[in-house]
Design a protein around this nucleic acid. Structure first.
Lengths: 225, 225
DNA sequence: GTCTATATATAATA
DNA sequence: TATTATATATAGAC
Protein backbone atom coordinates (compact mmCIF):
# COMPACT_ATOMS: atom_id res chain seq x y z
CA UNK A 1 0.00 0.00 0.00
CA UNK A 2 2.60 2.46 -1.10
CA UNK A 3 0.27 5.23 -2.12
CA UNK A 4 -3.44 5.59 -1.74
CA UNK A 5 -4.05 3.69 1.44
CA UNK A 6 -7.77 4.17 1.24
CA UNK A 7 -8.47 0.47 1.43
CA UNK A 8 -7.75 0.58 5.14
CA UNK A 9 -11.33 1.68 5.40
CA UNK A 10 -12.40 -1.91 5.06
CA UNK A 11 -12.89 -3.13 8.55
CA UNK A 12 -14.97 -6.25 8.28
CA UNK A 13 -14.30 -8.56 11.20
CA UNK A 14 -15.74 -11.46 9.24
CA UNK A 15 -12.76 -13.58 8.41
CA UNK A 16 -12.98 -16.91 6.63
CA UNK A 17 -15.84 -15.60 4.63
CA UNK A 18 -17.48 -17.50 1.79
CA UNK A 19 -15.29 -18.67 -1.08
CA UNK A 20 -15.75 -15.25 -2.57
CA UNK A 21 -16.46 -16.72 -5.96
CA UNK A 22 -18.85 -15.16 -8.38
CA UNK A 23 -18.42 -11.47 -7.71
CA UNK A 24 -20.35 -10.72 -10.86
CA UNK A 25 -23.61 -10.13 -9.08
CA UNK A 26 -22.29 -6.92 -7.62
CA UNK A 27 -21.05 -3.90 -9.46
CA UNK A 28 -17.85 -4.33 -11.42
CA UNK A 29 -15.42 -5.40 -8.75
CA UNK A 30 -12.46 -3.43 -10.05
CA UNK A 31 -12.72 0.31 -10.62
CA UNK A 32 -15.70 2.41 -9.57
CA UNK A 33 -17.65 1.86 -6.39
CA UNK A 34 -15.16 -0.03 -4.33
CA UNK A 35 -17.51 0.47 -1.47
CA UNK A 36 -19.21 -2.70 -0.32
CA UNK A 37 -15.94 -4.49 -1.04
CA UNK A 38 -16.73 -8.19 -1.40
CA UNK A 39 -13.10 -9.15 -0.79
CA UNK A 40 -11.85 -9.87 -4.25
CA UNK A 41 -8.94 -11.97 -3.02
CA UNK A 42 -7.98 -13.89 0.05
CA UNK A 43 -4.93 -11.70 0.42
CA UNK A 44 -1.56 -13.01 1.37
CA UNK A 45 -1.86 -16.50 2.71
CA UNK A 46 0.43 -18.01 5.27
CA UNK A 47 2.70 -20.65 3.84
CA UNK A 48 5.01 -23.17 5.37
CA UNK A 49 8.70 -22.62 4.79
CA UNK A 50 9.44 -25.80 2.91
CA UNK A 51 10.27 -26.55 -0.68
CA UNK A 52 7.51 -25.60 -3.04
CA UNK A 53 6.80 -28.58 -5.21
CA UNK A 54 4.71 -27.02 -7.93
CA UNK A 55 7.17 -25.85 -10.53
CA UNK A 56 5.19 -22.82 -11.52
CA UNK A 57 4.39 -21.58 -8.08
CA UNK A 58 8.00 -22.05 -7.04
CA UNK A 59 9.17 -20.03 -9.97
CA UNK A 60 6.82 -17.18 -9.18
CA UNK A 61 7.84 -17.22 -5.57
CA UNK A 62 11.51 -17.26 -6.49
CA UNK A 63 11.09 -14.24 -8.68
CA UNK A 64 9.08 -12.25 -6.19
CA UNK A 65 11.18 -13.06 -3.18
CA UNK A 66 14.45 -12.57 -4.97
CA UNK A 67 13.28 -9.11 -5.91
CA UNK A 68 12.28 -8.49 -2.33
CA UNK A 69 15.58 -9.77 -1.00
CA UNK A 70 17.57 -7.52 -3.29
CA UNK A 71 15.45 -4.57 -2.37
CA UNK A 72 16.04 -5.22 1.31
CA UNK A 73 19.73 -5.50 0.65
CA UNK A 74 19.73 -2.19 -1.19
CA UNK A 75 17.92 -0.50 1.66
CA UNK A 76 20.25 -1.94 4.25
CA UNK A 77 23.19 -0.83 2.20
CA UNK A 78 21.97 2.73 1.97
CA UNK A 79 20.62 3.06 5.48
CA UNK A 80 23.68 1.70 7.22
CA UNK A 81 26.49 2.36 4.77
CA UNK A 82 27.21 -1.32 4.47
CA UNK A 83 28.56 -3.13 1.47
CA UNK A 84 26.46 -6.08 0.50
CA UNK A 85 26.84 -8.72 -2.13
CA UNK A 86 24.41 -11.51 -2.86
CA UNK A 87 24.92 -14.46 -5.12
CA UNK A 88 21.94 -16.59 -5.96
CA UNK A 89 21.78 -19.76 -7.97
CA UNK A 90 18.34 -20.86 -8.97
CA UNK A 91 17.66 -24.55 -9.16
CA UNK A 92 18.59 -24.67 -12.81
CA UNK A 93 21.87 -22.94 -12.14
CA UNK A 94 20.93 -19.47 -13.25
CA UNK A 95 22.88 -16.76 -11.50
CA UNK A 96 21.32 -13.70 -9.99
CA UNK A 97 23.66 -11.38 -8.22
CA UNK A 98 23.32 -8.19 -6.29
CA UNK A 99 25.92 -5.63 -5.40
CA UNK A 100 29.48 -5.23 -6.56
CA UNK A 101 30.00 -8.91 -6.05
CA UNK A 102 33.45 -9.05 -7.58
CA UNK A 103 34.86 -6.45 -5.27
CA UNK A 104 33.23 -7.98 -2.27
CA UNK A 105 34.46 -11.44 -3.13
CA UNK A 106 37.96 -10.14 -3.20
CA UNK A 107 37.50 -8.36 0.09
CA UNK A 108 35.89 -11.41 1.57
CA UNK A 109 38.61 -13.79 0.50
CA UNK A 110 41.25 -11.34 1.58
CA UNK A 111 39.80 -10.96 5.02
CA UNK A 112 39.17 -14.57 5.85
CA UNK A 113 42.61 -16.12 5.61
CA UNK A 114 42.40 -17.54 9.08
CA UNK A 115 39.58 -19.81 8.14
CA UNK A 116 41.51 -21.06 5.17
CA UNK A 117 44.86 -21.21 6.90
CA UNK A 118 43.50 -23.29 9.68
CA UNK A 119 41.95 -25.49 7.05
CA UNK A 120 45.25 -26.08 5.29
CA UNK A 121 46.89 -26.62 8.64
CA UNK A 122 49.69 -24.07 8.30
CA UNK A 123 50.36 -21.03 10.37
CA UNK A 124 50.22 -17.51 9.05
CA UNK A 125 53.22 -17.12 6.78
CA UNK A 126 55.06 -13.83 6.59
CA UNK A 127 55.18 -12.24 3.19
CA UNK A 128 58.62 -10.71 2.85
CA UNK A 129 59.06 -12.25 -0.57
CA UNK A 130 61.18 -15.28 0.33
CA UNK A 131 60.33 -18.91 -0.09
CA UNK A 132 57.87 -20.37 2.36
CA UNK A 133 57.13 -23.74 0.90
CA UNK A 134 54.38 -22.33 -1.21
CA UNK A 135 53.18 -24.30 -4.18
CA UNK A 136 54.68 -23.05 -7.38
CA UNK A 137 51.60 -21.27 -8.58
CA UNK A 138 51.39 -19.49 -5.31
CA UNK A 139 54.92 -18.21 -5.72
CA UNK A 140 54.11 -17.25 -9.25
CA UNK A 141 51.27 -15.10 -8.16
CA UNK A 142 53.36 -13.64 -5.44
CA UNK A 143 56.15 -12.67 -7.76
CA UNK A 144 53.99 -11.01 -10.32
CA UNK A 145 52.40 -9.00 -7.60
CA UNK A 146 55.66 -7.78 -6.22
CA UNK A 147 56.84 -6.45 -9.53
CA UNK A 148 53.62 -5.23 -11.00
CA UNK A 149 50.73 -4.83 -8.67
CA UNK A 150 48.93 -2.40 -10.90
CA UNK A 151 48.88 -4.54 -13.97
CA UNK A 152 47.88 -7.45 -11.83
CA UNK A 153 44.98 -5.51 -10.50
CA UNK A 154 43.79 -4.67 -13.95
CA UNK A 155 44.16 -8.24 -15.08
CA UNK A 156 42.63 -9.77 -12.03
CA UNK A 157 39.29 -10.40 -13.54
CA UNK A 158 40.84 -12.23 -16.44
CA UNK A 159 42.95 -14.31 -14.12
CA UNK A 160 40.03 -15.02 -11.93
CA UNK A 161 38.05 -16.30 -14.82
CA UNK A 162 40.85 -18.41 -16.13
CA UNK A 163 41.42 -19.88 -12.72
CA UNK A 164 37.93 -20.88 -12.01
CA UNK A 165 36.76 -21.97 -15.41
CA UNK A 166 39.20 -24.81 -14.80
CA UNK A 167 37.61 -26.21 -11.72
CA UNK A 168 34.15 -26.97 -12.88
CA UNK A 169 34.35 -30.53 -11.61
CA UNK A 170 34.47 -29.49 -8.01
CA UNK A 171 31.37 -29.13 -5.92
CA UNK A 172 29.25 -30.09 -8.88
CA UNK A 173 25.76 -30.19 -7.51
CA UNK A 174 22.47 -31.02 -9.05
CA UNK A 175 22.05 -27.59 -10.59
CA UNK A 176 25.18 -27.99 -12.68
CA UNK A 177 25.44 -31.68 -13.40
CA UNK A 178 27.68 -32.45 -16.29
CA UNK A 179 29.70 -29.62 -17.57
CA UNK A 180 31.90 -30.43 -20.55
CA UNK A 181 35.59 -30.90 -19.91
CA UNK A 182 36.36 -27.52 -21.33
CA UNK A 183 33.83 -24.94 -20.37
CA UNK A 184 34.86 -22.70 -23.21
CA UNK A 185 33.10 -25.12 -25.50
CA UNK A 186 29.91 -23.95 -23.96
CA UNK A 187 27.86 -21.60 -26.00
CA UNK A 188 27.76 -18.93 -23.39
CA UNK A 189 26.41 -16.31 -25.65
CA UNK A 190 22.94 -15.44 -24.54
CA UNK A 191 23.65 -13.89 -21.21
CA UNK A 192 22.28 -10.52 -20.63
CA UNK A 193 23.23 -7.72 -18.38
CA UNK A 194 20.32 -5.87 -16.95
CA UNK A 195 20.26 -2.75 -14.95
CA UNK A 196 18.01 -2.94 -12.01
CA UNK A 197 15.68 -0.26 -10.81
CA UNK A 198 16.71 -0.77 -7.25
CA UNK A 199 16.59 2.02 -4.80
CA UNK A 200 18.82 4.84 -5.92
CA UNK A 201 22.27 4.80 -4.44
CA UNK A 202 23.19 7.51 -2.05
CA UNK A 203 26.06 9.81 -2.88
CA UNK A 204 28.62 7.50 -1.33
CA UNK A 205 27.66 4.61 -3.57
CA UNK A 206 28.33 1.86 -1.10
CA UNK A 207 27.37 -1.29 -2.86
CA UNK A 208 27.09 0.01 -6.38
CA UNK A 209 24.19 -2.29 -7.03
CA UNK A 210 24.74 -4.09 -10.23
CA UNK A 211 22.27 -6.79 -10.88
CA UNK A 212 22.56 -9.31 -13.60
CA UNK A 213 21.35 -12.66 -14.69
CA UNK A 214 23.44 -15.26 -16.41
CA UNK A 215 21.44 -18.11 -17.85
CA UNK A 216 22.76 -21.62 -17.83
CA UNK A 217 23.49 -22.51 -21.44
CA UNK A 218 22.50 -26.09 -20.74
CA UNK A 219 18.96 -25.21 -19.96
CA UNK A 220 16.49 -24.75 -22.72
CA UNK A 221 15.35 -21.19 -23.15
CA UNK A 222 11.94 -22.13 -21.95
CA UNK A 223 11.63 -23.86 -18.65
CA UNK A 224 13.68 -21.33 -16.85
CA UNK A 225 13.55 -20.58 -13.18
CA UNK B 1 1.73 -10.56 14.51
CA UNK B 2 2.87 -14.12 14.41
CA UNK B 3 0.19 -15.57 16.62
CA UNK B 4 -2.79 -13.96 18.21
CA UNK B 5 -3.95 -11.54 15.61
CA UNK B 6 -6.51 -10.04 17.90
CA UNK B 7 -5.13 -6.58 17.44
CA UNK B 8 -6.75 -6.45 14.05
CA UNK B 9 -9.85 -5.56 15.97
CA UNK B 10 -8.58 -2.06 16.30
CA UNK B 11 -10.14 -0.22 13.45
CA UNK B 12 -9.77 3.41 14.22
CA UNK B 13 -9.82 5.41 11.02
CA UNK B 14 -8.33 8.34 12.88
CA UNK B 15 -4.76 8.38 11.72
CA UNK B 16 -2.30 11.04 12.76
CA UNK B 17 -3.89 10.96 16.15
CA UNK B 18 -2.67 13.06 19.05
CA UNK B 19 0.94 12.65 20.21
CA UNK B 20 -0.32 9.87 22.42
CA UNK B 21 1.66 11.20 25.32
CA UNK B 22 0.47 10.77 28.86
CA UNK B 23 -1.33 7.45 28.76
CA UNK B 24 -1.30 7.43 32.53
CA UNK B 25 -4.84 8.64 32.91
CA UNK B 26 -6.16 5.32 31.71
CA UNK B 27 -5.66 1.89 33.18
CA UNK B 28 -2.13 0.46 33.13
CA UNK B 29 -1.24 0.48 29.45
CA UNK B 30 0.57 -2.88 29.40
CA UNK B 31 -1.07 -6.07 30.65
CA UNK B 32 -4.70 -6.31 31.74
CA UNK B 33 -7.51 -4.51 30.05
CA UNK B 34 -5.99 -3.78 26.71
CA UNK B 35 -9.39 -2.63 25.69
CA UNK B 36 -9.60 1.11 25.19
CA UNK B 37 -6.02 0.81 23.91
CA UNK B 38 -4.39 4.23 24.31
CA UNK B 39 -1.70 3.28 21.78
CA UNK B 40 1.41 2.80 23.81
CA UNK B 41 3.73 3.31 20.85
CA UNK B 42 3.59 4.98 17.50
CA UNK B 43 4.34 1.67 15.88
CA UNK B 44 6.66 1.31 12.96
CA UNK B 45 7.34 4.69 11.46
CA UNK B 46 8.06 5.33 7.85
CA UNK B 47 11.67 6.26 7.23
CA UNK B 48 13.46 7.60 4.24
CA UNK B 49 15.95 5.26 2.63
CA UNK B 50 19.06 7.33 3.16
CA UNK B 51 22.07 6.96 5.38
CA UNK B 52 21.20 7.04 9.04
CA UNK B 53 23.44 9.57 10.67
CA UNK B 54 22.92 8.72 14.32
CA UNK B 55 25.50 6.11 15.11
CA UNK B 56 23.36 4.25 17.56
CA UNK B 57 20.22 4.16 15.51
CA UNK B 58 22.19 3.04 12.48
CA UNK B 59 23.72 0.22 14.43
CA UNK B 60 20.38 -0.99 15.68
CA UNK B 61 18.92 -0.82 12.21
CA UNK B 62 21.87 -2.66 10.76
CA UNK B 63 21.47 -5.46 13.23
CA UNK B 64 17.74 -5.79 12.77
CA UNK B 65 17.73 -5.56 9.04
CA UNK B 66 20.69 -7.84 8.59
CA UNK B 67 18.86 -10.43 10.61
CA UNK B 68 15.78 -9.89 8.50
CA UNK B 69 17.75 -10.12 5.30
CA UNK B 70 19.35 -13.40 6.29
CA UNK B 71 16.03 -14.79 7.34
CA UNK B 72 14.54 -13.87 3.99
CA UNK B 73 17.46 -15.50 2.27
CA UNK B 74 16.99 -18.67 4.27
CA UNK B 75 13.33 -18.78 3.39
CA UNK B 76 13.98 -18.20 -0.28
CA UNK B 77 16.60 -20.91 -0.21
CA UNK B 78 14.24 -23.44 1.32
CA UNK B 79 11.13 -22.48 -0.59
CA UNK B 80 12.74 -22.48 -4.00
CA UNK B 81 15.71 -24.78 -3.62
CA UNK B 82 18.07 -21.98 -4.48
CA UNK B 83 21.60 -21.56 -3.27
CA UNK B 84 22.20 -18.19 -1.75
CA UNK B 85 25.27 -16.53 -0.40
CA UNK B 86 25.44 -13.09 1.16
CA UNK B 87 28.51 -11.14 2.11
CA UNK B 88 28.07 -8.05 4.20
CA UNK B 89 30.66 -5.57 5.34
CA UNK B 90 29.55 -3.18 7.99
CA UNK B 91 30.96 0.31 7.94
CA UNK B 92 33.81 -0.65 10.21
CA UNK B 93 34.72 -3.56 8.00
CA UNK B 94 33.18 -6.34 10.01
CA UNK B 95 32.09 -9.28 7.92
CA UNK B 96 28.76 -10.95 8.20
CA UNK B 97 28.14 -13.78 5.81
CA UNK B 98 25.27 -16.05 5.05
CA UNK B 99 25.28 -19.32 3.19
CA UNK B 100 28.08 -21.50 2.01
CA UNK B 101 29.83 -18.46 0.64
CA UNK B 102 33.06 -20.15 -0.34
CA UNK B 103 31.37 -22.69 -2.53
CA UNK B 104 29.13 -20.10 -4.09
CA UNK B 105 32.03 -17.80 -4.80
CA UNK B 106 33.75 -20.54 -6.70
CA UNK B 107 30.61 -21.32 -8.62
CA UNK B 108 30.03 -17.67 -9.26
CA UNK B 109 33.48 -16.97 -10.57
CA UNK B 110 33.39 -20.11 -12.64
CA UNK B 111 30.13 -19.23 -14.27
CA UNK B 112 30.68 -15.59 -15.14
CA UNK B 113 33.46 -15.73 -17.71
CA UNK B 114 31.48 -13.89 -20.32
CA UNK B 115 31.21 -10.77 -18.30
CA UNK B 116 34.92 -10.76 -17.71
CA UNK B 117 35.80 -11.76 -21.23
CA UNK B 118 33.76 -8.99 -22.70
CA UNK B 119 35.39 -6.69 -20.21
CA UNK B 120 38.87 -7.63 -21.35
CA UNK B 121 37.71 -7.26 -24.93
CA UNK B 122 38.29 -10.80 -26.12
CA UNK B 123 35.86 -13.33 -27.42
CA UNK B 124 35.29 -16.69 -25.83
CA UNK B 125 38.53 -18.59 -26.26
CA UNK B 126 38.53 -22.30 -26.84
CA UNK B 127 40.38 -24.28 -24.23
CA UNK B 128 42.14 -27.09 -26.09
CA UNK B 129 45.39 -26.28 -24.35
CA UNK B 130 47.07 -24.19 -26.98
CA UNK B 131 48.23 -20.62 -26.75
CA UNK B 132 45.63 -17.92 -26.97
CA UNK B 133 47.54 -14.85 -26.00
CA UNK B 134 46.87 -15.42 -22.35
CA UNK B 135 49.03 -13.68 -19.83
CA UNK B 136 51.73 -15.88 -18.45
CA UNK B 137 50.04 -16.55 -15.14
CA UNK B 138 46.96 -17.54 -16.95
CA UNK B 139 48.86 -20.13 -18.94
CA UNK B 140 50.54 -21.25 -15.78
CA UNK B 141 47.27 -21.92 -14.10
CA UNK B 142 46.00 -23.61 -17.16
CA UNK B 143 48.91 -26.01 -17.29
CA UNK B 144 48.75 -27.03 -13.72
CA UNK B 145 45.12 -27.73 -14.10
CA UNK B 146 45.57 -29.92 -17.09
CA UNK B 147 48.00 -32.16 -15.34
CA UNK B 148 46.66 -32.18 -11.84
CA UNK B 149 43.14 -31.05 -11.43
CA UNK B 150 42.62 -32.91 -8.21
CA UNK B 151 45.53 -31.47 -6.35
CA UNK B 152 44.57 -28.09 -7.62
CA UNK B 153 41.12 -28.51 -6.24
CA UNK B 154 42.43 -29.44 -2.85
CA UNK B 155 44.80 -26.53 -2.81
CA UNK B 156 42.33 -24.04 -4.12
CA UNK B 157 41.54 -22.41 -0.84
CA UNK B 158 45.21 -21.87 -0.15
CA UNK B 159 45.71 -20.42 -3.58
CA UNK B 160 42.68 -18.30 -3.22
CA UNK B 161 43.95 -16.86 -0.03
CA UNK B 162 47.40 -16.32 -1.36
CA UNK B 163 46.01 -14.61 -4.39
CA UNK B 164 43.85 -12.20 -2.62
CA UNK B 165 45.97 -11.36 0.37
CA UNK B 166 48.22 -9.78 -2.24
CA UNK B 167 45.79 -7.28 -3.56
CA UNK B 168 44.81 -5.40 -0.49
CA UNK B 169 45.64 -2.08 -2.06
CA UNK B 170 42.91 -2.35 -4.61
CA UNK B 171 39.47 -1.02 -3.96
CA UNK B 172 40.61 0.23 -0.60
CA UNK B 173 37.59 1.97 0.79
CA UNK B 174 37.01 3.85 3.96
CA UNK B 175 36.10 0.72 5.92
CA UNK B 176 39.57 -0.72 5.39
CA UNK B 177 41.81 2.27 5.21
CA UNK B 178 45.41 1.43 5.72
CA UNK B 179 46.19 -2.21 5.67
CA UNK B 180 49.87 -2.96 6.25
CA UNK B 181 51.90 -3.86 3.21
CA UNK B 182 51.84 -7.50 4.18
CA UNK B 183 48.52 -8.59 5.55
CA UNK B 184 50.06 -11.58 7.24
CA UNK B 185 51.52 -9.19 9.77
CA UNK B 186 48.02 -8.51 10.93
CA UNK B 187 47.06 -10.03 14.21
CA UNK B 188 44.05 -11.82 12.86
CA UNK B 189 43.44 -13.88 15.90
CA UNK B 190 40.21 -12.82 17.45
CA UNK B 191 37.78 -13.92 14.81
CA UNK B 192 35.01 -16.11 15.92
CA UNK B 193 32.72 -18.52 14.19
CA UNK B 194 29.19 -18.49 15.37
CA UNK B 195 26.34 -20.71 14.48
CA UNK B 196 23.16 -18.93 13.68
CA UNK B 197 19.69 -19.86 14.70
CA UNK B 198 18.35 -19.36 11.25
CA UNK B 199 15.42 -21.30 9.98
CA UNK B 200 16.16 -25.00 10.05
CA UNK B 201 17.43 -26.38 6.79
CA UNK B 202 15.26 -28.78 4.91
CA UNK B 203 16.55 -32.24 4.17
CA UNK B 204 18.27 -31.15 0.98
CA UNK B 205 20.38 -28.58 2.75
CA UNK B 206 20.56 -26.16 -0.11
CA UNK B 207 22.49 -23.24 1.19
CA UNK B 208 23.92 -24.87 4.26
CA UNK B 209 23.58 -21.65 6.15
CA UNK B 210 26.74 -20.97 7.92
CA UNK B 211 26.82 -17.58 9.43
CA UNK B 212 29.86 -16.02 10.93
CA UNK B 213 31.30 -12.75 11.91
CA UNK B 214 34.89 -11.74 11.44
CA UNK B 215 35.85 -8.61 13.28
CA UNK B 216 38.32 -6.20 11.76
CA UNK B 217 41.48 -6.44 13.83
CA UNK B 218 42.08 -2.75 13.27
CA UNK B 219 38.94 -1.73 15.01
CA UNK B 220 38.88 -1.44 18.74
CA UNK B 221 36.75 -4.04 20.40
CA UNK B 222 34.33 -1.42 21.51
CA UNK B 223 32.85 0.86 18.91
CA UNK B 224 31.71 -1.99 16.79
CA UNK B 225 28.93 -1.91 14.27
C1' DG C 1 3.04 -7.81 -15.05
C1' DT C 2 -1.33 -5.96 -11.60
C1' DC C 3 -4.30 -6.18 -7.70
C1' DT C 4 -6.02 -7.20 -2.98
C1' DA C 5 -5.89 -8.73 1.54
C1' DT C 6 -3.19 -10.43 4.82
C1' DA C 7 1.45 -12.07 6.78
C1' DT C 8 5.59 -10.28 8.17
C1' DA C 9 9.31 -6.85 9.11
C1' DT C 10 10.62 -3.33 11.79
C1' DA C 11 10.82 1.99 13.94
C1' DA C 12 10.06 3.70 18.06
C1' DT C 13 9.72 2.89 22.60
C1' DA C 14 10.02 0.87 27.42
C1' DT D 1 16.34 -7.24 25.38
C1' DA D 2 10.63 -7.20 24.50
C1' DT D 3 6.41 -4.79 22.95
C1' DT D 4 3.42 -2.38 19.93
C1' DA D 5 1.63 -0.28 16.04
C1' DT D 6 2.35 0.47 11.57
C1' DA D 7 5.02 0.04 7.03
C1' DT D 8 6.09 -3.24 3.85
C1' DA D 9 6.33 -7.84 1.55
C1' DT D 10 3.99 -11.11 -0.78
C1' DA D 11 0.34 -15.37 -1.70
C1' DG D 12 -3.17 -16.02 -4.60
C1' DA D 13 -5.74 -14.74 -8.45
C1' DC D 14 -5.73 -12.10 -12.77
Amino acid sequence: MEDGEASSITCLPNRKQEPLQNPNVLVNPKKETKLKNPKTTKGRQKIEIKEIKEENRRQVTFSKRRTGLFKKAAELSVLCGAQIGIITFSRCGRIYAFGNVDTLIEKYVRKTPMMLRSHSGGDVANGEGGEYGLMWWERAVESVLEEDMEEYKNALTALRENLLTRIHQMDADRTVENLPAFPNQMAMTDWKLMDENLTARNDRGYAGNDYFELPNPFMSQNGRQ
